[in-house]
Design a protein around this nucleic acid. Sequence first.
DNA 1: AATCGCGCCTGACGGC
DNA 2: TGCCGTCAGGCGCGAT
Length: 270
Amino acid sequence: MPELPEVEVTRAGISSFICDNTVTGLTIYTSGLRWPISIDLADLLIGQKIQSIERRGKYLLLHCHTGVVLIHLGMTGFLQILPEFNPPGKHDHYDLVFINGVVLRFNDVRKFGSILWAGTDPHIHKLLAKLGPEPFSENFDGTYLHKISRNRKISIKQLIMDSKVVVGVGNIYANESLFYAGINPTISAGQLSLSRNKQLVNAIKTVLADSIKIGGTMLDFRDGTEKMGYFQKRLAVYKRDGLPCTKCSTPIQLKRIGQRSIYFCSNCQQ
DNA sequence: AATCGCGCCTGACGGC
DNA sequence: TGCCGTCAGGCGCGAT
């Protein structure tokens, strides 16, 4: 269940199975996802070879000869590779079927994910056009974050979760990054100095990269079982309210900003 | 332009 | 046991 690391791990994991492979079918079990699956999508896809899979934020872009398919996993969705067809289970919503029998299957309890056709120039599609820089890009640095946050009144936590500012930082990694940067999540974004913005950017890059390296926080998509990812064991503050801070042993606090939980150490994060 | 709150949907959990 | 409210990793949209 995806934040950027899970989406990236998924991209890397499914690529070898479906790139250079030809689509022979799209089987829809539930069309009523976040955006209803278009009945034209199968016609657009069948017979096409997947050329590559790109990730933009938390979207996956399947590049085909005549255009791009956008996949979003929502809050609870995941993709699985099945070596051959087997009957769908609960919350399975669609299968992308390939000529060699491989099936790419989407499961999502909450139906917040979707799949849609984005045409030949996906980066001008309205879902992608306004996205901010990728967290690992050189464009995303302390100077950029400092500049974009001037005069912003919202908390720094809310700012880094805004996909127009930077993509791919969800609630878990926002909390974790602010801990490693030693920044209180409730501070107004406009108040942070350049040097603290630099620290925060470094923390975001490190936290996301570390999580990707060990396979994401949550689901292990590779066999479809709901095993916890290894990053789960490394979380410093997220879901650790009441437990001792790993640096100073002060109990981790839980509060809410903008209907989202924040976890932080009131001693280490000022 | 920036901010806020809603809603899409299912399920788990805690209190009574 | 059931009922109810709250919460969950996302995110686009409309109102202000």
